[in-house]
Computed example of a mutant assay.
Amino acid sequence: MAERYSSFAPGGTAWLLQRITAAFLVVVLAFHFFQLHFVNHAADVTWQGTQIRMQNLGYFLVMVSFLIAGTFHGVNGVYNALVNQGLSGTPKKVVLAVLTIASVALIAQGIYVALVMAGMIY
């Protein structure tokens, strides 16, 4: 029987953060889905309604946390999947650098959009 290999070292920081962000994302995704499909039906979601929701500090912080956790979880998962497939050496470093830069850009853009939606900047 083949041995199972995982780039996640059980008990390591990346392993722990992957599980914490997974649990967080399940809860926040349920909240997000409930909020935007049952409380506010998708057809009724407007820019003004989004601005009102984003002006609530709790909602704003949850959505920014959702963005950060989702980005980390997704990018960390993709990176580790590539490592599990045999990515190593210089290509591994290049992929890590590209994914890190893309993650920072995505989070920066997302926070900027959240700040605009909350009316904190124009």
Rank of each mutant, 00 (worst) to 15 (best):
M1V: 04
M1F: 01
A2N: 10
A2M: 09
E3Y: 00
E3F: 01
R4D: 09
R4F: 11
Y5W: 13
S6K: 05
S7W: 00
S7A: 01
S7R: 02
A9P: 03
A9F: 08
A9D: 07
P10S: 00
G11F: 01
G12Q: 04
G12W: 06
T13D: 09
T13G: 08
A14L: 10
A14W: 05
W15A: 00
W15K: 01
L16E: 09
L16I: 11
L16P: 00
L17W: 02
L17C: 03
L17Q: 03
Q18D: 06
Q18P: 05
R19C: 01
I20Q: 01
A22F: 11
A23H: 07
F24T: 03
F24W: 02
L25H: 02
L25I: 03
L25A: 01
L25T: 01
V26G: 04
V27K: 02
V27Y: 06
V28C: 13
V28D: 11
V28W: 12
L29T: 15
F31Q: 05
F31D: 04
H32K: 07
F34V: 12
Q35P: 12
L36N: 14
H37Y: 03
H37N: 12
H37R: 09
F38T: 08
F38A: 05
F38E: 06
V39W: 15
H41V: 06
H41G: 09
H41S: 11
H41W: 13
H41K: 11
H41M: 09
H41A: 12
A42H: 10
A42S: 14
A43P: 05
A43N: 09
A43H: 13
A43V: 05
A43Y: 15
A43W: 15
V45A: 04
V45P: 04
V45R: 02
T46P: 02
G49Q: 09
G49L: 09
G49D: 06
G49P: 02
T50S: 15
T50K: 13
T50Y: 12
Q51E: 13
I52G: 07
I52D: 11
R53T: 15
R53I: 13
R53D: 14
M54K: 05
M54D: 04
M54G: 01
Q55K: 10
Q55W: 01
Q55E: 08
Q55C: 06
N56T: 08
